[in-house]
Amino acid sequence: MSAAEAVRPAPAPRALTGASGERTPGAPVHVLLTGCVAASVAAHGWTAVGGDHGAGWSLVMAAMAVACSFCLPDLVRRPEASGPVRMALSTGVAMAVVHVLMLPLMGGHASGGHPAHHGGAGAGPGAADAVTGGTGSSTMLALIVLELTAAVLAAGLLRRRARTGAGLLR
């Protein structure tokens, strides 16, 4: 081994490089996005199995876990492609909206089956439960934050790739 070979940096892992071996723009953001989507799949699965809501909501949360899991394999296998990142962006926003709409519907189940109408004048049941700290609403708010974080990471990654002209593969 020559001295030049001994000081050459090690190649970046496959998840951080494109097909040609070059580092893709936004590689650390891509790793964060992939981790966030994986956490979302796990959180939805955990909420479906261990949530404090009825069987109907468990099925909804299981379906959302499956929907999240469609983004994950392509994010891992094709880090240079923008298609999976776009899918993560749109899915993250859509799920955040669905969870926001679910908050008032889960108001009666989130605090152990007691109706959450003690929050104040004019506040809806979901808002009252979110204020009083019901378990279901706090879990739902955590999921919303996780999904919006994934959407923001995906949007930033797409913008960075568009600015550099890289990663425009489907």
Rank of each mutant, 00 (worst) to 15 (best):
S40V: 07
T149M: 11
A166P: 02
M61D: 04
V7E: 08
R77Q: 12
L157P: 00
T164H: 13
L141K: 01
G92S: 07
H114E: 13
L16H: 09
S138Q: 05
A121G: 15
G124F: 12
A154Q: 01
L89K: 08
R14G: 10
T139R: 08
A39R: 10
G21A: 13
A127I: 03
A27P: 09
R78K: 10
G126K: 14
G26I: 11
P79I: 12
G54Y: 15
A155S: 02
G156T: 14
M61T: 07
R86M: 11
A130E: 02
A150C: 02
A6G: 01
S20V: 05
L146A: 12
H117P: 12
M106A: 15
V7C: 06
M102N: 08
S82V: 01
S2H: 06
H117W: 15
A154Y: 11
T164N: 07
G21D: 08
L75V: 12
M102I: 13
G35K: 00
R163I: 09
R160N: 07
V60G: 00
A155M: 01
R163L: 14
L32I: 13
L16F: 14
L143S: 06
T139H: 07
A12H: 12
A42W: 02
P25Q: 06
G156R: 11
G119A: 06
V66C: 04
A116K: 08
R8Y: 04
V76G: 12
S82W: 07
M87T: 05
M106F: 05
G108H: 09
S69Y: 07
G18L: 04
V60Q: 08
F70D: 10
R77T: 14
G156M: 03
T24C: 02
A4C: 02
A130C: 11
A65T: 00
G119E: 03
A162I: 13
A96L: 02
S69G: 11
L157N: 03
A19W: 09
R77I: 11
A123Y: 09
G133N: 10
A88N: 01
G133V: 04
R78N: 06
V85Q: 05
A3C: 13
H44A: 03
A123N: 08
L169G: 10
G92W: 02
L89S: 07
G83I: 00
S2W: 09
A166F: 08
T91P: 00
L103F: 12
R163D: 14
V41E: 00
V131G: 06
L153V: 02
M140S: 11
A48W: 05
A127N: 00
A81T: 09
P13F: 10
G35H: 05
E147Q: 13
S82N: 10
L59M: 08
V7P: 03
A123R: 12
A3K: 13
W57T: 04
P73Q: 06
L143R: 06
R86Y: 08
T135F: 01
A110E: 07
V66F: 00
G56C: 03
P125L: 10
M102H: 05
G119L: 12
P25L: 10
V60N: 09
A88V: 04
V97R: 09
T17M: 15
H118L: 15
E147M: 15
H53S: 12
G167R: 01
M106T: 14
V49K: 15
C68Y: 03
A12K: 03
V100M: 15
A39I: 13
V131K: 11
A88S: 10
